[in-house]
Design a protein around this nucleic acid. Structure first.
Lengths: 142, 142
DNA sequence: CCATTATGGTCAGTCTGTCTGACTAGGTTG
DNA sequence: CAACCTAGTCAGACAGACTGACCATAATGG
């Protein structure tokens, strides 16, 4: 059996994480889709502009606006005026959104722990190191 | 700067590979979409059943059928009867499909090489090792 | 040996997420 | 202050995914 391409192996594992997070959110009563989740993952504490959210998720601002409309209607985020720019508004997590975020982070920690159990500390550290380094040449956004 | 979650880092790198492959295919005159490419990646030498393709790409057989229709019309694959089961047909790469496959594999080798240059042989081997091991607990299809 | 169930695939209809292009309102700058 | 830039929306299109219903063929167990 020849080595599968690392990119493919990464897709498998990354997909697994997403699936675990989405499933947990669903079980906790949240009705978020993957696209909505990816978008919300880009919101930081003080709130984030639509344009920045779009860039982080690598989608157009139209798509981002569409998704923000949805999660706003569901009560996960709110749009507040940006005090520093009258054109802009900040998308901020509402209480329900922070709940979902907590849940997501919990599952992520759990997965990380499972991986460390499986690989052992040393290999896990090597993985984290290699991935972090690889980001320098693969992240279009950094 | 705290460590980003390995799953997220994997998404970034995996996406980079896909982007590189799609761009190269496009430059070589192939008009394949990402979804079509992912589907075709699941076709093996003797041909593969629609149902298996769907399972490998983790989509429904209806979606897979839709995509096969498209790439068949574009001349990348052909459907031939399955000699062992009259209900089934095998989806097989046509010459144009094999060309695209060669191109894709070429880019994948190139990316692998770039990564090895960046990480060094040892860290690259560690990465491959960790990812392969991780597959045991993250691949729903193995 | 046939009735039942399982499997491979299609048809019909729907929905989500994405895009491009055109536009408005509000900043920024020479 | 004129010209340009930037944040966001509106309108329209389309790809790709889903569910549910269905048909044809295989496989299985009384």
């Amino acid at each position: 059996m020849p080595d599968l391409h690392p990119g493919l192996l990464m897709s498998i594992a990354a997909r697994h994480v997403e699936m675990r997070v989405m499933r947990a959110l669903h079980e906790a009563g949240h009705e978020l889709t993957l696209a909505q989740g990816r978008l919300m993952a880009g919101i930081d504490g003080e709130g984030t502009r639509l344009t920045d959210l779009a860039a982080r998720a690598q989608i157009t601002k139209q798509s981002a606006g569409f998704l923000v409309d949805q999660v706003e209607r569901l009560g996960y985020v709110e749009r507040v005026p940006d005090p520093t720019d009258a054109r802009a508004r900040l998308v901020r997590l509402a209480p329900r959104g922070r709940e979902a975020q907590r849940e997501a982070r919990h599952v992520e920690r759990q997965v990380r722990h499972e991986w460390e159990q499986h690989l052992g500390q040393e290999r896990m550290a090597a993985l984290q190191d290699a991935l972090t380094s690889l980001r320098e040449i693969t992240d279009p956004w950094a």
